[in-house]
Amino acid sequence: MRHRVRRNPHLVMRFIESSVSPVARPGPLTLLWRWRYETALIAGGPAVVVLSVRTVDPAFTVTTGAVVCVIVIVWPQARREVESRLWCVVTPHRVRKACAEAMIVTRRGKLPVILRTRPEPFGERLWIWCRAGISPRDLEQAHDVIAAACWLAREVRVTRHPHRASLVVLNVIRRPEGPVLEEEPPPCETWQRSLPRFPRH
């Protein structure tokens, strides 16, 4: 006796959407921007070591590196700082992956732009710019998908920016301690507010 196969309508819609508007491949400059920290570490780390060995002393270089590693391992504050910085590098990649899987893209397949990532006591805070064709509501509806994609995250909170319709503040909650404060405007917003305003005629 043959059993009827139950089709998941959500998966069917995702298959149709991915066929109609697939995620566009990023260009070289976009790839370089997304992987700027990894590129700087891979290219700059060996360069610093070689420069230190040639200009100072190999023993001094090895000793300094060992001391720094021991401080990071033993000192809790330094360990938490390094961990938070690593999450700020990993989390944007996971958010972009979640947006691609949830089909939060424009008709040309462009993903939202992550402008900035900052460590917070609760986890990470990201400022995301929605391109034309993407709304903050798309990210709000996919918050469960984004939370599942962000490794070891408890939840994700999506907040619309109070002054910019295309800007979204995404809070990735990893630790229960530390209150989630109201989002601060990004540096460009603070700079614009500091400018004098002239009366309109």
Rank of each mutant, 00 (worst) to 15 (best):
R7T: 07
H10E: 12
S21L: 06
S21P: 00
P22S: 06
P22R: 05
V23K: 10
R25W: 12
R25E: 13
P28I: 11
L32Y: 12
R34L: 00
W35R: 15
R36W: 07
E38I: 12
E38C: 09
T39N: 06
I42R: 02
G44N: 07
P46W: 06
P46N: 08
V48N: 01
V49T: 10
L51Y: 10
V53E: 01
V56A: 11
A59R: 14
V62H: 09
T63E: 10
C69K: 05
V70R: 02
V70E: 00
V72W: 10
W75C: 13
W75R: 08
P76S: 05
Q77I: 12
Q77T: 15
Q77Y: 13
R80V: 00
W87C: 03
C88E: 09
V89N: 10
T91N: 05
P92M: 00
P92V: 00
R94D: 09
V95H: 01
R96I: 02
K97P: 00
K97W: 11
K97V: 09
A98C: 04
C99M: 10
C99N: 04
A100R: 11
A100P: 03
A102C: 14
I104Q: 03
T106P: 02
T106E: 03
P119D: 09
P119M: 09
F122E: 01
G123F: 07
R125K: 06
L126F: 10
I128N: 03
C130G: 07
R131F: 02
A132F: 04
A132K: 07
G133P: 01
S135F: 12
P136G: 03
L139K: 05
E140A: 15
E140F: 14
Q141I: 15
A142T: 04
I146D: 01
A148R: 15
A149C: 10
W151Q: 06
L152S: 13
R154Q: 06
R154L: 07
E155Q: 12
V156T: 09
R157E: 09
V158N: 02
P162T: 01
N171W: 00
P176N: 03
P176L: 03
E177Y: 14
E182S: 11
P185Q: 00
C188W: 13
E189D: 13
Q192V: 04
R197K: 14
F198P: 00
P199R: 13
P199N: 07
H201V: 12
